[in-house]
Amino acid sequence: MKIAFYGSSLLSAYWNGAATYYRGLLKALAARGHAITFYEPDAFDRQKHRDIDPPDWAEVVVYPADEDSARRVAAQAADADVVVKASGVGVFDDLLLDRVMAAARPGALKIFWDVDAPATLAEMRNAPDHPVRRALPQLDLVLTYGGGAPVTEAYKALGALHCAPIYNAMDPDTHFPAPPAPKYRADLNFLANRLPDREQRVDAFFFEAARRAPARRFLLGGSGWEDKATPPNVAKLGHVGAGEHNAFNCSPLAVLNVARDSMAEVGFSPATRVFEAAAAGACLITDDWVGLEMFLEPNLEVLVARDGREVAEILESLTPARAEAIGAAARRRVLSGHTYAQRAAEVDRLLLEARVDAGVSSTV
């Protein structure tokens, strides 16, 4: 099928945490025979910080970040069998949702793909006229980045006909063990852009751990931290390109994951970093959230902390041998059960079911 996908960016992970998710899923869907066209705005300097060239498995249309261009590319949804508007494009989101779905031809599947469902749901509960909420009864399917049953049931309660989570995963061609790089050697590495709904938890888990373990070395990667006051044993790296993530994950004793506020509250929302680190064979320490056991087994495949004190305590007791064993176990787990090829098969099943429900022939 021809899939028209309107998202933030496929080519750049700069201020765009969904890039790895898009790349893994859409590459795997293309391998299953779908023709992908990805529409992304030239916004937020992402095109100046591309991580990849346009891939051979998708056509990428980069359009100027203005209203006329958004309307023009939205009209091209008429050529597709499946039209997808993702959340968080960043410019003209409401216009794109309205115009893309209006342009969809009769028989085409209409999908909203929410990469920050807890936040979107919070907005919709307080706004009966929210554009996504208004659109739900006309959509064939809502797919989410995570959230499990709490998110899918909430979407259905607000009017979605069908809703299903498509979790993050790993691409073994992209995420794999790499030789340690001296510039990334530390006791604990953490990679995340500075965002208002994450910073308090980063303070509690990462910076507090650094304060409690002054003899340890901590590396902070990601954009927006330049003016953040940090303990002296924290080194700031700035933006770390996607091509450097394997080395970033494989060089320290351990890497840290800290969920954003809404995702930690709802649970069942593993970030891309979780699967990237596990696929690289890194020893991952994560904050505690409901549903973690669906993806990695605590103490065997991942270490779990409830605050910065516990992160520091884990570091003090963690030996290189145990870190290596945890990383190896995590890698085996994600290779067996959490690849984007498996996620794409799930999407294919959902598309087929949606076409049957809509009375559309499955031979298109």
Rank of each mutant, 00 (worst) to 15 (best):
A344W: 00
L141W: 12
F268T: 08
A122I: 06
M263K: 09
L25R: 06
T286M: 05
F92P: 07
E59M: 04
P298W: 04
S8W: 04
R331Y: 03
A86L: 05
A312H: 09
K85N: 04
P128G: 12
G291H: 03
T339M: 06
F112V: 08
R306P: 09
G308K: 05
L97Q: 09
Y167R: 10
D203Q: 13
K183M: 11
A122L: 12
M124R: 11
R309V: 15
V334S: 03
F112Q: 01
E324M: 13
A122W: 11
Y145C: 04
A30M: 09
L136V: 12
D81A: 13
F190M: 09
M294Q: 13
K110Q: 12
N193M: 13
L25Q: 03
P137E: 13
A31C: 00
A35S: 15
R133E: 07
V304P: 07
E297D: 09
G291W: 07
I111Y: 11
A215R: 15
K2S: 14
M170Y: 13
P131Q: 11
D187N: 13
A192W: 02
R217H: 14
P214W: 00
P165N: 11
V258A: 13
F206M: 09
Y14C: 07
V115H: 11
N257L: 15
D94Q: 14
D66A: 04
H34S: 13
H245F: 09
L95R: 05
S87A: 15
N168S: 14
A279E: 02
K110L: 05
A75R: 02
R50S: 11
A215G: 06
T152S: 09
F190R: 05
A323F: 03
A192S: 15
V240P: 15
H175C: 10
R322K: 15
A117V: 10
G221T: 05
Y184N: 10
F190Y: 13
D227T: 14
D45L: 06
D42K: 05
P118D: 11
E297S: 07
D42W: 06
A330N: 07
G308W: 03
V234E: 01
P182Q: 02
D357G: 15
M263I: 07
Y63Q: 03
A160E: 08
S251A: 14
L292G: 06
V142A: 06
R355M: 03
G147D: 08
A160I: 13
K85T: 01
P41C: 00
C163M: 10
L253W: 02
D171M: 05
L219R: 09
N126A: 15
R71E: 10
L284M: 11
V255N: 10
F112N: 04
K27G: 06
A70V: 02
G281K: 03
L350G: 10
A135P: 09
E123K: 14
L11G: 07
A282R: 02
A329W: 02
V73I: 08
A254R: 00
L141F: 11
W225T: 08
D227K: 08
A278R: 07
V91Y: 06
